[in-house]
């Protein structure tokens, strides 16, 4: 056990074996007491951290899972077995929300490619790259509510974007009212609002890039596309993986504000995500137990996704 070793390390110099020959009976007892104190000390020291984790993280988690097996309304507090989970499985709204999680995963490469590409251009010093660097980061400091409100205006059916499309002869698109389009709209806005952070990470990755490789490519007459494909991407593997992980987490956990402001889960419930579903059931429909069940499902999904990502990161770490 690793806990044993620090206690040996912190043992004061005077209590070593050198003094053992001259120890009296009383001294031995004191020594034993001190030994016990030293054995306990590490537990005492880690106790606050463990208690905080257990009390504020694990215990609520267990309670939440526990509540998911109880009923709502008149059945409040009575065990109902798996009926909440069966209700979830039968609820088309919850299935839509899970399907949307899948959609987010599919859209992840786009969300990573955009900041990656833009960072590449900045790194390659396209004209005005200094301006772009700050401009691209700017939306990242806006709150989702503000971003949502701005895009609500822009994307309204009679809003400026449709007016612009009208001038070039493209029919108006109901960006937020068409169930086949709305989710993509919201994800697009989310990417717009958050890619600044990923861009910064990419730029940091670029700073570790070996410039001589790029020079060599240039000398060999490689085109921009080939430079990106054969030099930049392989050198940035770890950065790209990191951005993948953080973007994924961001997409799954922080879309609520945008959804709330832009679509409110609609139209036709097509933009529900599990988070939004949980909030809706708990806050609007007054069904905390069902919401607990949905939270548990979301927890399991996140756990699986998280473990996959850890495996991915660990494997890439071993490669270096």
């Amino acid at each position: 056990m690793p806990i044993e070793s620090p206690s040996r390390l912190v043992r004061p110099a005077g209590s070593g074996r050198a003094g053992a020959a001259t120890v009296t009976h009383r001294g031995r007892r004191r020594d034993a007491r001190r030994g016990r104190a030293e054995r306990i000390a590490p537990y005492v020291l880690v106790a606050p951290a463990v208690l905080i984790i257990v009390g504020l993280r694990l215990w609520p988690l267990v309670l939440g899972v526990n509540f998911s097996f109880t009923g709502d309304g008149e059945l409040n507090g009575t065990p109902v077995g798996l009926s909440n989970y069966l209700e979830l499985a039968g609820d088309p709204l919850f299935r839509t929300s899970l399907r949307n999680v899948g959609l987010l995963v599919l859209l992840l490469p786009v969300a990573v490619a955009i900041p990656g590409l833009l960072a590449t251009f900045i790194y390659l010093r396209v004209p005005g790259h200094r301006v772009y660097r700050s401009v691209y980061f700017f939306p990242a400091v806006l709150s989702p509510v503000i971003v949502g409100a701005i895009f609500n205006l822009l994307l309204g059916y009679d809003g400026p974007l449709n007016a612009l499309l009208g001038t070039v002869g493209v029919g108006p698109v109901d960006w937020l009212g068409d169930p086949g389009v709305a989710m993509f709209t919201v994800v697009g806005v989310h990417i717009w609002a958050t890619f600044g952070m990923a861009l910064v990470v990419f730029l940091a990755g670029f700073s570790t890039l070996d410039a001589s490789l790029l020079d060599a490519a240039r000398v060999d007459g490689a085109s921009l596309r080939r430079t990106i494909w054969h030099v930049i991407i392989p050198s940035l593997t770890r950065t790209i993986q990191f951005v993948f992980v953080t973007t994924m987490i961001g997409m799954l956990t922080s879309m609520f504000g945008l959804l709330f402001v832009m679509t409110n889960g609609g139209p036709e419930g097509s933009t529900y995500l599990p988070e939004f579903y949980i909030w809706h059931q708990q806050g609007q429909m007054n069904q905390p137990a069902l919401a607990s069940a949905a939270s548990t499902v979301l927890f399991v999904v996140m756990l699986v996704v998280g473990l996959l990502q850890i495996t991915l990161l660990r494997r890439s770490g071993r490669q270096d």
Partner: peptide, 17 residues
């Protein structure tokens, strides 16, 4: 543990009066 909870979910999600 999950099985135990399934069969014995206790307490209540909304606090009783």
């Amino acid at each position: 543990m999950v099985m135990a909870l399934v069969s014995a979910g206790c307490g209540s999600a909304a606090r009783p009066q």
